[in-house]
């Protein structure tokens, strides 16, 4: 057991954890943020995607010790008012069905949208192929990313 401090969604959390514990379980069970989901534990499904210093990573295979001193952002911290362009697009197109995988889907999409202002179909495939949705909302995810890119441009202009 090691004492460590994690910076999650802008605030410091001091915990005592086995340094080998995956970041996923530290976030869920030790910090108590339940929006990040467990789906497979072996980097196959993307339900656990969070941002580590801005990269979309799979928290189920990332040791908690690797997150020390870095910025962790979870779905709860993606925006204050549930209004990141991806979140807005997801809402407008009613993307989720069961909704369990969409924390991870949105976190993956958010990085894509930051890197590409106008993602092509190929960009979307590349960024999203690691996220499984058992309800099969893929067609809507694709549409939502295109819409989010538009919303993003508008906010940039206004901002």
């Amino acid at each position: 057991m090691t004492k460590m401090t994690l910076k999650i969604n802008g605030s410091d959390h001091t915990l005592e954890a086995d340094p080998n514990m995956p970041l996923l379980w530290a976030i869920r069970d030790l910090v108590g943020l339940k929006g990040t989901k467990y789906g497979c534990g072996v980097a196959q499904c993307g339900a656990c995607v969070v941002h580590l210093d801005g990269d979309a990573i799979r928290s189920c295979v990332t040791k908690v010790s690797r997150a020390e001193g870095k910025q962790v952002v979870t779905i709860e911290g993606l925006s204050k008012n549930n209004d990141h362009p991806a979140q807005l697009a997801w809402q407008q197109l009613d993307v989720p069905q069961y909704g369990y995988c969409h924390s991870g889907q949105i976190m993956s999409a958010a990085v894509l949208l930051r890197e590409k202002a106008d993602p092509t179909n190929q960009d979307i495939d590349d960024a999203m192929a690691g996220n499984i949705c058992r309800c099969g909302t893929y067609l809507r995810i694709r549409k939502a990313i295109v819409l989010a890119a538009e919303l993003q441009k508008k906010t940039v202009k206004q901002g």
């Binding site: 108590g32 943020l33 339940k34 929006g35 990040t36 989901k37 467990y38 979870t74 779905i75 709860e76 993606l78 925006s79 549930n82 979140q87 997801w90 809402q91 407008q92 009613d94 993307v95 989720p96 909704g99 369990y100 969409h102 924390s103 949105i106």
Partner: peptide, 21 residues
């Protein structure tokens, strides 16, 4: 019409079984 539960599923606040504490 848009579904009422969607916003809970885009910001991590929907409580699924495993999220119960």
């Amino acid at each position: 019409l848009l579904r009422l539960d969607t916003p809970f599923k885009t910001n991590g606040t929907a409580v699924f079984g495993m999220d119960k504490v």
